[in-house]
Write a protein that binds this DNA or RNA. Structure first.
Lengths: 187, 187
DNA sequence: TCTTTCTATGCAACTCGTTGCATAGACAAG
DNA sequence: CTTGTCTATGCAACGAGTTGCATAGAAAGA
């Protein structure tokens, strides 16, 4: 149940509304965790009920009111407890790999377009992560020296970058294999 | 809902019982998909009801009877349809990254042991994958030339290997960062 | 003016996935 | 003879995650 903990971390970094959290989960947090607004609102409500979060109604101009959540003491305590527990190393869920093995019972060449599409998406993500890294960590506007929190954010981002680079290289390998099986590759 | 499709692929590669599928999901299929036996039995039952799979009761000696499942025509058709549909590129779910960012609000040095544990698990998996690769694809006992299905299995395994190597390198980076933060006292 | 887009929150229904428990035959070790 | 392990299947309950729908104020553009 790491969504709770991801929300706690994000709200400790900066308090915000469900809507703002959902946007963060599309951006920086989304580098390593995803969640829809439905999930987030539901969990926020439960965590508020459990006393882990504090809420504050904030009136805005030119926008609907929002509920700004921040972490209460029991929330910090719960996060701290979780940080000291061991967790299971990740297991993968890679739909595309299922498709690739399934292609043996269909037409492998028909997968090429799909793999190219994934390649493009991952290339886009990599560019996005690299832009974020320059903006926040390695560019001329980045604070020097970085504080502890930023160092940790940076090493997580480097993980996302490494993941995308690895994935792109593997998709190149997959494409070469599919071309080899389907005939000579196009120039 | 790719578990269905992963099961179809696995049963096309070789018919088997729920128990056998569960073991495959701990091994080769587990390189890119995980499932518990509960999930598998439940989905097998549903797929049988939908006419996607055929069952055969097999009596065994020295062991309980088993139900051997194989793919029926509607199952192949469903898999083929799915193979021609586009799917969403993966999104990550990385608990450890949540912990790393959370460590900014706790003691980063306390995470070192946990990260080392993950490092050991991933190193073990890498060794296991490499052994499998030598056994099935690159070793002296591997058939030459490989058929289409094996080529595709190999490229998926190469993906698993690339993933583990990338992860291990990143965990080294994480450890170096944690040591750096815990080593020199803050100014 | 009308439509679309963005901010902001939420319900209902459903499927997916995990955890704990239960059963049962065969075999091996103590 | 009891305990533990391996094969083999399954139920029940719960929590996690997805999809579709609904509402509503404000701004921007056709």
């Amino acid at each position: 149940m790491a969504l709770e903990h991801a929300i706690l971390v994000s709200l400790l970094e900066k308090p915000g509304s469900g809507y703002e959290l959902a946007r963060r989960f599309e951006r920086s947090i989304g580098y390593f965790w995803t969640a829809t607004h439905q999930q987030i609102y539901r969990v926020l409500k439960r965590m508020e009920g459990d006393g882990m979060l504090a809420v504050r109604e904030v009136a805005q101009q030119g926008r609907p009111d929002k509920k700004e959540y921040s972490v209460a003491a029991p929330g910090s305590a719960a996060l701290s407890r979780w940080l000291h527990e061991p967790i299971e190393p990740e297991s993968m869920r890679h739909d595309l790999a299922v498709k690739i093995r399934g292609a043996a019972f269909d037409d492998p060449a028909a997968l090429i377009r799909e793999v190219e599409r994934h390649h493009a998406v991952h290339s886009g993500r990599l560019a996005h992560y690299l832009a974020g890294e320059r903006r926040d960590f390695t560019g001329p506007d980045a604070p020097v020296p970085l504080d502890q929190g930023r160092e940790l954010q940076h090493v997580v981002l480097r993980g996302g970058i490494a993941y995308e680079r690895m994935t792109i290289a593997w998709l190149d390998d997959v494409l070469a294999t599919l071309h080899r099986l389907g005939g000579p590759p196009p120039a």
